[in-house]
């Protein structure tokens, strides 16, 4: 009885700890910029990740990356590599790190850091052209990043 209660409590605590969102400043980047731990503790929703990837108001990843599986979204960019098979080539930890802050994996890359809030030159208030105050809200929320990672993991040769 007591043991069960204890275990339940432990499991709950663990669950709660994991469910706590990792803040941008606290993300632990490992070798080559990988991020092993989920930013939210909640599994990613690939369907929402698909919309984050494709919509201009969210990740707008498609402005730089082409993805065959997104044939319904018009105008895929050419600035970054084609990601149609990235779910085979990259692990979850690698993808999480690349989306959170690609500069940790690819030094000097033009890919923006989606989970970063300070250290900018002339930070603006979104697309208004007016000054913004750091810390800025990150470009994507922790859950959106988990969702987009879940979507990227589905990108495989069918």
């Amino acid at each position: 009885m007591r043991l069960t209660t204890l275990t339940t409590a432990l499991v709950l605590a663990a669950g709660m700890a994991a469910a706590e969102t990792v803040l941008p400043a606290d993300v632990a980047y490992g070798e080559e910029g990988v991020v092993e731990m989920s930013l939210t503790g909640k599994p990613g929703d690939a369907e929402n990740g698909r919309s984050v990837f494709g919509s201009k108001s969210k990740g707008n990843c498609v402005s730089c990356h082409a993805v065959e599986q997104l044939a319904d979204v018009p105008f895929h960019g050419e600035v970054g590599p084609d990601l149609s098979y990235t779910g085979e080539a990259r692990s979850e930890a690698e993808l999480r790190g690349i989306v959170a802050n690609a500069k940790m994996t690819f030094e000097g890359t033009v890919m923006p850091a989606f989970y970063k809030t300070k250290g900018y030159i002339r930070p603006g208030d979104a697309y208004t052209g007016k000054a913004g105050a750091e810390p800025l809200p990150p470009l994507l929320s922790a859950q959106d990043i988990e969702d987009v990672v879940a979507f990227l993991l589905t990108l495989k040769e069918s």
Binding site: V62, S63, C64, F75, G77, V79, V110, A113, Y120
Partner: peptide, 18 residues
Amino acid sequence: ELSCANCHEDNYGNYIRA
């Protein structure tokens, strides 16, 4: 974190969205 050069020197000729 983009400079003029990132778009117009490194990527001219490429499409960025449309």
